[in-house]
Amino acid sequence: MNILVLIKQVPEIEKVRFDYEKGRLDRSSAGAIINPFDLNALEAAVQIKEKTGGSVTAISMGPMQAVDALRDALARGADKAILLSDERFAGADTLATAYTLASAIRKLGAFDLIICGEKTIDGDTGQVGPEVAELLGIPHVAYVEEIRQICSDKIVVGARMERNKYIIELRLPGLITVTKDLNNPRLPTLRDKLRAMRAEITVWSYKDLNEEDALQYFGLNGSPTRVIRVYTPAAEKRKSQVLSGTAPEVAQKIVQILRESGVLG
């Protein structure tokens, strides 16, 4: 089974500081990691490969620093890594990103399954996976939390929507996006890390994608959406009335508020 995993390098969102005065992120305040959801995608791919044989290729679009994320992917079990890096890819929204990834996947040739994380922790859109599926003309299932069965031409997955969980048979080649509930990503060993340090990472630029006169589909040019303004949300004004007294007194005051609001009594 030939599996592709789409990954993104993201800032460590829990650690990154926000500069409220300047109204922007202080990116120097945190390191860069593989998007956590992509680790579940990678783990799923490696588990399938261990069962069926074949190979796992990690693909990422980003600046040259993103090779670190790809090395991490290699240490965690990917066999090959491809970085799509070009100034002309910069400023891409989800559509242009999906276009670039789909273009690289077409160049790679035959594949059976593409796995993505359900979303990234920085962009938080969850759009790139389904958009890649559409551009490649393959079916997809999002929010996969269980893989029941995999054969050469189909995969059976479980995905929860709003009211129901669905068990879906997806024809291959196909794409799935996976949630954190799917598995527990393994940690790379020191040996794996050292091997990944020495591994070759393929870098493709716009020219390598062999797209004729297609610059208008890439990067900022290919992005129909534009961020026009970024601001810190205004703090909501609440009356912040203090309730003081002994515990029983405070409890009585809360009961009074609940009664006045109509949720009690």
Partner: peptide, 23 residues
């Protein structure tokens, strides 16, 4: 922006080659 909506909307947007803003 439910799970159904967020599964479906990107496919429609990519098919129409139009922009989509999430959530």
């Amino acid at each position: 922006a439910t799970r159904i909506g967020r599964s479906l909307a990107p496919r429609i947007a990519a098919s129409l080659k139009t922009g989509l803003t999430a959530d």
